[in-house]
Design a protein around this nucleic acid. Sequence first.
DNA 1: CATGAATGAGACTTCATTCAT
DNA 2: AATGAATGAAGTCTCATTCAT
Lengths: 197, 197, 197, 197
Amino acid sequence: MTQAINKRKSPRQERAQATVAFILEASAHILVERGHGALNTNQIAMRAGVSVGSLYQYFPNKEAIMTELIRQKRERMLTGVDMALADTEADLFEAALNAVLEVIIQLHLHWPNLALALDQAEAFLPLNDETIQFKDALKAKIEHLLCRSEFTVSEQTTQDVIAISKGMIEHAGLAGETDEVALRRRVIRAVMGYLSN
Amino acid sequence: MTQAINKRKSPRQERAQATVAFILEASAHILVERGHGALNTNQIAMRAGVSVGSLYQYFPNKEAIMTELIRQKRERMLTGVDMALADTEADLFEAALNAVLEVIIQLHLHWPNLALALDQAEAFLPLNDETIQFKDALKAKIEHLLCRSEFTVSEQTTQDVIAISKGMIEHAGLAGETDEVALRRRVIRAVMGYLSN
Amino acid sequence: MTQAINKRKSPRQERAQATVAFILEASAHILVERGHGALNTNQIAMRAGVSVGSLYQYFPNKEAIMTELIRQKRERMLTGVDMALADTEADLFEAALNAVLEVIIQLHLHWPNLALALDQAEAFLPLNDETIQFKDALKAKIEHLLCRSEFTVSEQTTQDVIAISKGMIEHAGLAGETDEVALRRRVIRAVMGYLSN
Amino acid sequence: MTQAINKRKSPRQERAQATVAFILEASAHILVERGHGALNTNQIAMRAGVSVGSLYQYFPNKEAIMTELIRQKRERMLTGVDMALADTEADLFEAALNAVLEVIIQLHLHWPNLALALDQAEAFLPLNDETIQFKDALKAKIEHLLCRSEFTVSEQTTQDVIAISKGMIEHAGLAGETDEVALRRRVIRAVMGYLSN
DNA sequence: CATGAATGAGACTTCATTCAT
DNA sequence: AATGAATGAAGTCTCATTCAT
């Protein structure tokens, strides 16, 4: 139930749902192409092909749009990780790690600037409760993954694995890397190296 | 040396230098305490105890303030790394790595929110040339450091080491970690693990 | 009779009449509870349980709703006064004054905030013709009432009696008085005092 | 110290004081000529011959302007009453009543629409604390005045005298009366009639 | 040089009203 | 008739920057 919290009303008719989608798409595009500073409600509405009024029917303010974008990203991430974990045999650690990283890297590199822009936005927005929940959820999943390995896993270990991966993937995004396979291989190398030392 | 490219005048007199310092301090404080969104020139001037007019005597626009803050951070970082490298014997890799990380971690954790805020600001500002120069300089130094080790060092390796370290240190900053020693030990573990695999 | 001048259609069917009633009630409630500033057509429609579209079937614009509310208030007042006058013997002045004030006070204190809100609204709305008619009608009735007394009655006298009564009743409404009998006694004292001096 | 509470900064330089004065004047004019509904910050600024920005230097929002206008009115009223009371011999009740009413009527009829507009505005604005203080202060002064008379004075009496006077004066303002002397005579007749009955 | 008042473009948001379904 | 999504003019307010003193 991603809705409701920061939305004004849930779009019942198809048209309305399309409007919401347009607004979110437009916001993402602007964020990617012209950055945070150029993101304003008039631009968003214009680019989405709707009126500002419509925008405010579904989002109480500008932040709510960012928030929803971030929520979507997080949801995609969590479900992606879940699916990756579900698709791999419980006892094959490296395969699972591989699958999980494949999903995460794909999500980041597919639209690298959006991922980056949203990461930055997270710092400003007051979605702390949700942020904590998300981080906890992700941490739990990664911990679960790491427990499939032969290594001893503490909370710190999990955090570090996340930090290492995030650091490398973001760095790659910023640097304009596109070779997902190579990146994945290097992240695995780092993670395995960290775990096995 | 701090270049004068984006400055209106180099403050030769003492009072002027103090003014500049006040402005930068005030900006840093606001950034840390109330975030990017609350940083505006009137606030800065007020907090710095000067008039907006004075502020514009020393900085051509708001971005220049951020830029200068970032420059200072970078300069501290590069000189810190240089000194760390200079202080260690040329053939002791781990000692050098340790020293370098000590400096970097200290810079980050001393005022974690400022480091974070400035990192984020970098993404918005159009100081690309300088940014590239800085990244190149840092990369060169780290490459230099890594070459002291027994491992084969490619550009990719250097980048990854930087990415891993940055990821972990930022993560620690966000998480409010304060134990610099423990953090350094973990970063070293990650870097060594990555290199030796 | 409620005129149809400012109405789009006279609601002959029951449901339509109910809709109109709901809209007016909702408006009154919002006015009382949250004031003039919170009164907007979307809110009214929502509170009335109809759609904005329906609202605009029965009222050409927002003002028309206020106007209708004011009309109703005036109508209740004039009929109330008429009935009070009709119910009392032609030669008993004080009894008649008493009866008239009873009606008026009741109308005001029953929903004091609505009365006040509507009084204020009157000042903004361009229903001057109707307003003049109403005032004239009321003045005529009061003059008629005063003529039952032993005192000489000029137009000024009538106006003053109205002004005094209105002033005291509104003041009581604002102050949250609820003792209608005591209020009536004091108003009578003021009016009689004025007339007999 | 009327300032500070609802002001952003107090104007230190002459120019700034003039700006504040212009803004208040302009607001009063608009209020009188075109009513509450036409009062918006852009109009005010334009009419005052300053920029909106300047307006917001001295008033945090639109309401603050109205508030200040109301404060001024109240202050003029209270000081006016004080002076009237001070100017009359302590034992001459009617002379004092006369003097007080003269002041109040003058304040109202001099710019009748402004007085009315502000009275209405009072109802919407959240200056309740101040409103209560003002009413108490006025009540105290009037009570003081009434105690000079031979009549027994309760709080209710005072309230009623205020209500009667206010009702009559406002009514006169609305009706466009200009003969202050005649009005005063009638108000005195009403008040004396009420007291002596 | 410093001051701080003034500026105004532009961002955010509301709400009366229309109109396709 | 009813619905509720869409509209956009208009209003509120901020803040980077200028400029008279």
